[in-house]
Design a protein around this nucleic acid. Sequence first.
DNA 1: CATATTATCTGACCTAAGTCAGGCAATATG
DNA 2: CATATTGCCTGACTTAGGTCAGATAATATG
Lengths: 293, 293
Amino acid sequence: MSTDAIARIRRFNRAVTSEVGALDESFLGRGRPLGAARVLNAIGHGYTDVAEIRDYLGLDSGLMSRLLRSLEAEGLVLTTPHPDDARRRIVSLTPTGEAEYAAYESLSDAQAETILARHPKSEALLAAMDLIATALGRDRIILETVDPNTPDALYCLDQYYAELGRRFATGYDVSLAAAPDAREMSAPLGAFILALSDDLPIGCVGLKGKGTEIAEIKRLWVAPAARGLGLARRLMQAAENAARALSITTLRLDTNSALPEALALYQSSGWVEIDRFNDDPYPDYFFEKTLNS
Amino acid sequence: MSTDAIARIRRFNRAVTSEVGALDESFLGRGRPLGAARVLNAIGHGYTDVAEIRDYLGLDSGLMSRLLRSLEAEGLVLTTPHPDDARRRIVSLTPTGEAEYAAYESLSDAQAETILARHPKSEALLAAMDLIATALGRDRIILETVDPNTPDALYCLDQYYAELGRRFATGYDVSLAAAPDAREMSAPLGAFILALSDDLPIGCVGLKGKGTEIAEIKRLWVAPAARGLGLARRLMQAAENAARALSITTLRLDTNSALPEALALYQSSGWVEIDRFNDDPYPDYFFEKTLNS
DNA sequence: CATATTATCTGACCTAAGTCAGGCAATATG
DNA sequence: CATATTGCCTGACTTAGGTCAGATAATATG
């Protein structure tokens, strides 16, 4: 019997360790020790400073130096003194190094493709992977203010609309809602805040301003994989801070009773219900919050 | 932008490798190389034959021998010649070895507990882990005929009843359905078949016989984590084989339109709809299949 | 009973990975 | 400007992990 939580987690660990080991094996196939391959990949991934790479990979300074030397001997990397401080050194890939890095990347891709190809219901598998990666990396979730027209922002908005379509009995038609234009959700009128977990967009919120002291919160969304981590609250907090920075004193929002978690969040974080303030067809609840100081 | 499938799988890999590495680190904390710790754990896990352990861990015979010697020197294991063949050797843990093994086990448990404690919505996390472990280990799913009163079988039945309760608009009350007694689902009358993935029960099916050439299929269930892998079909096939072995020529089953996947499975695998053959309150569809040869 | 096979062990050897002390050049500081 | 600090490098050394060629003893086979 192995149905209790601890046993299930340990079973998961066993299942993934063999996959992880398989990738190391395929990396070794390129005839280079793993240490050197890791350094090469770190450089290809954008790390340039020797100390930075050492820190990222947790290497001793002596070992790091030797690994760099061996990559240099292979003609894969080039080290040059840092322009500001000649003690530091900058590492970059030669064209050969770029090709080698690309080869490692395609090994990683191939492994991922194999997993994908072996599972017929891949969407469920990917959703489970997102959930686990987000849960394990919850301390590294970062919020970022971006232009609402960036691909990541548009991806979140698409997901948001799809979710409303599933939640509302009548479906959801974006064109019927008053689409806030990007200008109103960018500085200096408003903001659009994205939550990223290891570069995957997992949530967003929009602050739609008109240059007055009243602004609206729009498009609060948290990916299914990130629910239960308190991310919505964190996004709302960030939106409020952004509003304060823009001298906004009153926030409003509209929502729908088909979104009970959202209602509970607003009611538990200082929002008070007010009368309808627009004629959008979808919302049936309206809230306001006064920002202090 | 990292929202495509490949990128999501690679992100998952990154997220879990650090967890996996952390466990290795904590294992090293017991002052023994990982290789020796792995052998000790394999023995603690029930492996006894030297060749078996070597095969399981993928070790060279020379290395294996040396690791055993070092564990012996520490007083953790005892090797004795195999009673049937004195060339082979069986390894067992000394009391000290048992204690050391238990210490490793509790390190693994502690890591699992940490993961669990850090995630508030742990049921979703566990479900995701089950799905991934099952998907990655799909080639190692085994079917086993067991007594329907074993804990694993009862666990599956509980899950099955809970699922019906969620699916049926009216809920599901086990006491209203004609509960098949264990004797009718055991040899020589019938069978109860379990699907196990790395010891976790992920599906079941019952063959309920009365000693005649007609028998019933009951309690076909597949865990959410294992859906989409063709397991239901495999379980049904095994049930049919078990029926043939018992000289049963006709199988019947009842089901409910609230279980469309089940209906589709029966319709696509040679079952034909027949008239109601019992007065159970729940089923509204009845099928029969004639077993050839 | 001689010979082949099997299972494990031993010694010799190798590479990867990592630690540590000290060296050297560039830069910061009193 | 003397001295300390910083960033990287080199040499010496250690351990883990693993390969390979026999050695040894037990068992199977003609």
